[in-house]
């Protein structure tokens, strides 16, 4: 692999960090407009992060060293996972390091430490959040893996770059399996990024929290890292869906023009996905925790049907 490829991979990775708050801001903005509010500026998440980084960090007496290390681990693991998802070009050097199963593994690593951090201080809410997060993700992770396995079996590769290339080569095919995989992955993305109807990122009622309950005790730069990691995860799922299922526009050679076009197209796709998310969050109400399994079972069912319809309808003989 050439140095330009690695440089490009680094640029893409940095772009992820830079874009993540923007997507969160966009979703918030659209949601506000849908609710007839003007909403905060698109750049508000950046300002929040800046402010949090400048603030002093506090920590409970009862917290251990893990509490301080966790934000860094969570952020780095999420970021590495994101760096392996093709953003602008499918010719991504880092995609060979981490295929889609590794990405899922890195996200799971981040979640593992997030949940542990929630339990570290020894408060009731933290433990509750950790328990719920692991519960939801235990059901969501198989669905996610099944959905991406459908893609991987079709493309004969778990490498996301290869999957995107394969998609571009046969872009005009209608695959029943992809319809299901996409639907399943959308549901998983909602659950995993803690959006309505599974979790509510803006809730102020502790008893309904999942993600927020785990990071209740964080402040200052620790909190900023945790929030940023969550935004990064949202972006990761957005890009995964946008670039794998709708790969059009992604740069196939490393020219400035193609990359610029890819960026514009990508932003367009993400804006569209953001609108879809905002609309669904506006029209849906948060579910009770014990309705979530039904939601996630639907995701798993869709993903499994995707696999079966690949096996039955597409492979043929």
């Amino acid at each position: 692999m050439n140095p330009v490829g690695w440089l490009l991979a680094l640029v893409q990775a940095l772009l992820y960090i830079a874009l993540a708050p923007l997507l969160a801001g966009w979703v918030r903005k659209v949601k506000a407009r849908l609710q007839n509010r003007r909403g905060a500026s698109l750049w508000q998440p950046y300002q929040d992060l800046y402010k949090l980084f400048a603030k002093e960090a506090r920590m409970a007496h009862t917290a251990s060293i893990l509490f301080r290390a966790a934000p860094y681990i969570v952020f780095v693991a999420t970021w590495l996972a994101a760096a392996a998802v093709p953003l602008l070009t499918s010719d991504l050097a880092t995609a060979a390091i981490a295929d889609v199963i590794v990405i899922a593994g890195l996200l799971a690593l981040a979640r593992f430490f997030l949940a542990l951090a929630g339990m570290d201080v020894g408060t009731a809410f933290g433990g509750m959040g950790a328990s719920r997060e692991m519960f939801v993700s235990a059901l969501a992770e198989p669905a996610m893996l099944m959905a991406v396995f459908t893609l991987a079996m079709t493309a004969h590769s778990t490498n996301l770059s290869a999957v995107v290339d394969y998609q571009l080569a046969g872009a005009n095919l209608l695959r029943p399996s992809y319809v299901f995989a996409l639907a399943g992955l959308l549901l998983v993305a909602i659950a995993e990024t803690g959006r309505i109807p599974v979790d509510n990122p803006t809730t102020h009622l502790e008893l309904t929290m999942i993600h927020e309950a785990m990071i209740l005790e964080y402040s200052g730069r620790h909190l900023a890292l945790m929030e940023w990691a969550a935004q990064l995860k949202l972006l990761l799922y957005g890009v995964l869906i946008a670039n794998v299922f709708f790969p059009w526009g992604i740069a196939r050679d490393v020219g400035a023009g193609a990359l610029g076009l890819a960026l514009v197209v990508l932003l367009g796709k993400l804006m569209l996905l953001g609108v879809v998310l905002a609309v669904s969050e506006t029209v849906l109400a948060k579910m009770r925790l014990f309705r979530a399994p039904a939601f996630l079972n639907l995701a798993l069912l869709l993903a499994l049907l995707g696999l079966l319809s690949y096996v039955i309808l597409e492979v043929g003989a």
Partner: peptide, 25 residues
């Protein structure tokens, strides 16, 4: 037989058939 050799309409038919199955579920 692979999916690539099928005309578009038949591909669409496969998708629809799969969705019929989904509605059954």
């Amino acid at each position: 037989m692979s999916l690539e050799q099928l005309p578009m309409l038949q591909q669409l038919m496969l998708v629809l058939a799969a969705m019929v199955l989904f509605t059954s579920f």
